[in-house]
Design a protein around this nucleic acid. Structure first.
Lengths: 357, 357
DNA sequence: TTGTAAGCGTTATCAT
DNA sequence: ATGATAACGCTTACAA
């Protein structure tokens, strides 16, 4: 690798001059600048940013800790991170914890993986990253970030409860509210819910969104219309019957997988989705588009959360104040209107197989 | 950040001694070692690897250039890369080119994106990566890698035609052969193929695998039984009729999307997949598992390719010779036997709606 | 306008 | 067994 010293020697100037030219400090004659630039070009010289970093103490790099790259949310989040970082000319050091691969679905119950996280952080810090973005594999409370981090840190797709460590999360409540408002706008009043696991943050927020939409639509909230699933297709299938018995005209499933199960069951029961009954999902997983009929769903703002996370951390690096007082940034979902929601006409009753109360 | 100098001062030894202790050079009394180690612990000192890198000229980091993180193949490939790199204690610098986002599906027709790639490479090189892994978004000939790369380079999920730049690719031929052999083992002889685009490398290799399987099964290769699609669901749907007219007992779709289209059409036609007729896919996309019935398919060895890519490049760094003579490493697919392939009994004829020749 | 030299945090050589 | 010191490639006062 050619160094600044060699360029200087060839040009018969000092390294300081070369350095000044590279970094656009003034005070260099046009003649020498041209000569030096030409040689730099010819020699294909690129400054060694390790040396530069050592001297100037800014690495223009940020560390990204991914709980598990292969979980569906991560690639888009990281994509968003990289987009903004590229604009601001920051490099990314990636640490993939592979938590799902290592512990399957259980790692987040205790904090036993804390030491793995700490190791990742140390590594990144030793490489002089200026900030760290921790990307959770699913949204929950992240409490493995050490006290007194040496560099600004933000958590994407997870909460921290610590104002000094901003979190970037999905605005589940608003997303669900918007989705259910849409259902209501199509004439639905009796809207069943297949919720996720009861202790999930997503479940709680989305339920609140549902309740808000009902309220603003002047519809009584009937707790009997919400049942809890396990986020998987089977539980969507299983819970559909309960809601059908209650004679709902629309079913809001809190994720697309469960909506898939609802599709399956509804199909067996002889319903035509998008005609006899409405189904809506959440997340906008790849399959949503390929269901028959294509599933209307509320897409997670994965890319936008990553983008926002970069914005927040880079603003932190540049010492500007944050705008979210409590350090929580809610990012809006994206609505995908497809074909699974029919207009509901109160006059026309739909197929009714209710067991009658 | 605490430095080695401060540790030295506190311990009243020289920095050289501290350095020797950290790096396990001998010649230090147990007494001082213990004392220094204790202080290092207490002060939570981590060596600055930028400085270390500058001095020793090995960064233990490799650059990963991803054509587009959000394309389905990439996360698993990168996961494989990170797994091996973690074992070997190499760090990853990630550059996400975002080619699909920037150019949609056309960028790979010309090499106009070459300058974007070069910029990424320069950046990585300036950060002193010891090697570069280029990860293509879909398998094809990659000819944007500059001549005379300053560090070892390998391409994952793409060909280079340059022995000095090894490529890691899917063994499509073997995968297809294995899949079709399986079909044959289930009694199928008249096996239709919905191929991908005719000019695709995947199509050509998978077709060869099909032919090899037929040959070893002593079955005549009938070119009329292969039709070409566009890799999308619609073309699977459309081409199904052609094959059905030919009275095939099994359909091998060269990807899962087209298999989905075949499912749709077969369903309309009144066939029971996995009973009246067999369907097999390729790729093992997420949806394959959720089709009804679950689709038997040949999974792409994404993770394994990434893992192998790291192995190859790290071996290159350590100057060991490669084992693939021409620099191409074929990685085996993984078979997923599910429920879409029935045993075919020659005695029993299946539903026949052929238009009769 | 250009050059000299110190220093960033390490490791490595050579003394002591 | 330990320490002084040069060097890695760069930036930056400051001097010329």
């Amino acid at each position: 690798m050619v160094t600044i010293k060699e360029i200087a020697k060839i040009c018969e100037v000092s390294v300081a001059t070369v350095s000044n030219i590279i970094n656009d400090k003034g005070g260099v004659s046009d003649e020498t600048r041209a000569r030096v630039l030409k040689v730099i070009q010819e020699m294909n010289y690129t400054p060694n940013s390790v040396a530069k970093n050592l001297k100037t103490k800014n690495s223009r790099s940020i560390g990204v800790i991914a709980e598990d790259m292969t979980v569906f949310a991560l690639p888009d989040i990281i994509d968003g991170i990289t987009e903004y970082c590229e604009k601001e000319d920051y490099q990314i050091l990636l640490v993939n914890l592979r938590l799902y691969k290592k512990f399957e679905d259980t790692y987040y119950r205790d904090d036993s993986y804390g030491t793995i996280v700490h190791r990742g952080i140390r590594k990144l810090l030793s490489m002089q990253v200026e900030g760290i973005i921790y990307v959770a594999a699913h949204e929950r409370l992240i409490n493995v970030i050490p006290e007194r981090m040496a560099v600004p840190t933000v958590v994407a797709y997870g909460f921290t409860n610590r104002p000094e460590i901003p979190s970037i999360v999905v605005d589940d409540t608003k997303g669900a509210e918007q989705l259910v408002r849409y259902l209501i706008s199509q004439g639905h009043k009796k809207i069943g819910v297949i919720a996720g696991k009861k202790d999930s943050l997503h479940t709680q927020s989305r339920l609140e969104g549902y309740q808000r939409a009902l309220f603003s639509g002047n519809i009584l909230y009937d707790p009997n219309l919400v049942v809890y699933g396990e986020w998987d297709r089977a539980s969507g299938y299983r819970n559909t019957d309960i809601l059908i018995e209650k004679n709902v005209s629309a079913i809001f499933c809190m994720n697309d997988f469960m909506a898939g199960g609802t599709y399956d069951r509804l199909y067996e029961l002889g319903y035509q989705i998008g005609k006899d009954i409405a189904v809506a999902g959440f997340d906008n997983r790849e399959m949503a588009e390929f269901e028959k009929p294509p599933l209307t769903t509320m897409g997670l703002p994965l890319h936008d959360m990553g983008y926002r996370a970069s914005e927040v951390i880079i603003r932190l690096l540049e010492k500007e104040k944050m705008d979210a007082e409590d350090g929580i940034y809610y990012v809006d979902c994206n609505f995908f209107e497809r074909e699974s929601v029919n207009k509901f006409d109160t006059q026309t009753s739909h197929i009714d197989i209710s067991y009658a109360p």
